[in-house]
Computed example of a mutant assay.
Amino acid sequence: MTTVLDILDKGTAYLEKRGIEDARRNMQMLVAHQLDCTRMDLYLRFDQPLEEAHLAPLREALRKRGEGIPVQHLLGSVYFRQHEFKTDARALIPRPETEELAEWLAKNLKLPENAHILDMGTGSGCLGLSLAHDFPTAQVTLADLSADALTLARENAEFIGEPPLPDHLHFVQSDLFQNLEETRFDLIAANLPYIPDGEQVAIEVRHDPALALFSGVDGLDLIRRFIPDAFQHLNPGGWIALEIGIHQFSEVENLLRAASFTDVLTLKDLSGIPRFPVARRPGL
């Protein structure tokens, strides 16, 4: 009889042979999901026999993970700060780095009552919906060019099942600010595509929509369009916050200053990489 420990050991070895990073953790996540328990619970269930009803779907999930399908797609959800979000091929998988940006904004920004917040390129909605919970009186707009991504963001607004009030959330399909011409914001946050065209990415990343990944020869085409328009759509004293790729911070800081932003600063992620440029529109 196959036990929990048996399947963990065999599955880990299988994933390691196929070059899957952090194979043990991946296998723990798949088994815990199948048994509807936490990864920590598995340590108390090592000797539990597994019936074929559990083994068959585990084998299928293991095969797909070995082919590079992201574990988050196989589980159907991912935790981002205090909430669990649905995730699938319609949008970029929420990343821990974006979680760091959301955390910094929640702790460090003092926004006015009834502030207006924009999450540009919202994807799954994880950033915008998290900010909506951090600033519960704010009006939050989640914008994306992709209709599929916006559908997922709407589903996540219902999936997390907590405030803010529905009339505080606005979902807009837009090519950057094309459909937001009349709106001004106190905070514009964006995790836009920043990978250079043709750059090789991990096999898991290839399951994200190309629209959410690539942006020109140096990866900054969309950001170059975005920054000057963002300045025009901020209230005086309003903030812009971005997530960017490795080695891009100097160019992005120059773009921010050229657009008349002040207080330009690039925050580092937990790996020490300059990852999050933030700046303000001068004013009150």
Rank of each mutant, 00 (worst) to 15 (best):
D175V: 13
V140E: 04
A259L: 10
E113F: 08
A279G: 09
F80C: 04
L192F: 01
T2C: 13
V31M: 02
F177P: 01
P196A: 09
H133I: 15
D218R: 04
L15K: 00
H207V: 02
D47H: 10
I223H: 03
G66W: 12
L242E: 07
N235G: 09
Q28P: 08
D229Y: 11
D6E: 13
D41S: 11
L62E: 15
Q200S: 06
G121C: 08
E67V: 03
P209D: 01
L169I: 11
M1C: 08
E181Q: 15
R90Y: 02
I227H: 05
G238A: 06
N114R: 12
K10A: 13
M29Q: 14
N156Y: 13
S146D: 15
P163E: 08
V140K: 06
H54V: 10
R65A: 06
F135H: 01
L142G: 00
I227A: 10
T98N: 00
D148A: 05
A23L: 06
L165R: 15
R63I: 09
A202V: 00
H73V: 00
L192D: 07
I223V: 15
M40G: 08
G128V: 11
G245E: 05
R184I: 05
L75T: 03
T98R: 02
L8H: 05
P136W: 01
L165N: 14
D88W: 03
F46Q: 08
R81G: 00
H33W: 13
Q48K: 15
A190D: 12
L220E: 12
L211F: 05
F231I: 05
Y14W: 14
L176P: 06
L105A: 07
P57V: 01
T137L: 14
D269L: 04
C126G: 00
A102I: 07
D148W: 01
A102F: 06
V278W: 03
H83T: 02
L118S: 08
H83P: 05
I195R: 03
T98D: 02
F249G: 12
G198F: 03
A279Y: 03
D175R: 12
A53L: 10
G125Q: 13
G19P: 09
H207R: 03
I20C: 02
G121E: 05
P166D: 15
R25F: 13
I188G: 07
L187P: 01
L35C: 05
E113P: 03
V217H: 11
W104V: 11
P274K: 08
L255D: 04
K10C: 04
I188T: 04
A157F: 10
K107G: 00
L265D: 13
H170T: 07
Y79M: 12
A89H: 12
L118V: 06
A258R: 11
G125R: 09
D186I: 15
I160S: 04
R90C: 01
H116K: 15
F135K: 02
G219T: 06
E21Y: 02
V71D: 06
L192S: 01
D197K: 09
D134H: 13
T266L: 14
L55K: 15
K110C: 07
L270Q: 15
Y194T: 01
M40R: 12
I117A: 05
M1D: 05
S174F: 03
D119K: 09
D148N: 13
